[in-house]
Amino acid sequence: MSMDVAALGRWGIDSLRELGRAGLLLLRVVFRLPDFKKGFPLVMQQVYAEGVLSLLIIVVSGLFIGMVVALQGYHTLVKFGAAQQLGPLVALSVTRELGPVVTALLFAGRAGSAVTAEIGLMKATEQLSSMEMMAVDPLRRVIAPRLWGGFISMPLLAIIFNTVAIYGAYLVGVKWLGLDAGAFWSNMQTSVDFHLDVINGLIKSVVFGLVIVWIALYQGYYAEPTSAGIANATTRTVVYSSLATLGLDFVLTAMMIGGW
């Protein structure tokens, strides 16, 4: 019995310590004097690796999610004779929820896992410690650009996802199911508010982006420097960042609906 309690206590202390280490890592990356001249090209490379290379999966899933939501929504709305409200249905569900959340989940799988694996391997092959030997700060050279790269890419990807999904819905609703294009857009415009729906969705995606790269960087930086350790770290990145995304999504939605 007392052994179980001790194990619980040890687990609690370990988790807290891990959280503290992750917090310190974030603190050391974020709160430091930026060196724009050296940092900018590195951040660009990471925006390319995390953002541009994720575009394909984002665009394709956005298109199909928009089309599926339109199809499902039409099927239900037509029972109430409210098929004209398909535009608002799709636009609101995509900009408010599906856009930020699905983009974040895909981003965690596509970019987060890659970041963890890359940094974990750098650590296992002692590239990070050799950088320190050469008086290059790995936090500044390796970690910070990846954090800012994810921070920048994620909202951009979410914007693109939203737009593509809405055009996917347009494709299904107007071109295939034969709704009126004017009603589709004008109903959408009357019910979607730029600040409440679009901007709040983007705020969500900024938060998700930061949290996902943070988790990915932490898992990579403190990964056990073995092949099994890197595999575990990559898995944990995807699991933790997906859970964090969904949990934070609820908290943020509750805050936004409550008007902050």
Binding site: M44, G51, V52, T95, S153, L156, I160, T163, T190
Partner: peptide, 23 residues
């Protein structure tokens, strides 16, 4: 590539602002 990515995102934001939310 990053520049194109940014351009695409800005255009998408314009669409969201004017076409979707009718701003």
């Amino acid at each position: 590539f990053v520049g194109l990515f940014l351009l695409a995102a800005m255009m998408a934001l314009m669409v969201l602002a004017f076409k979707v939310s009718g701003l």
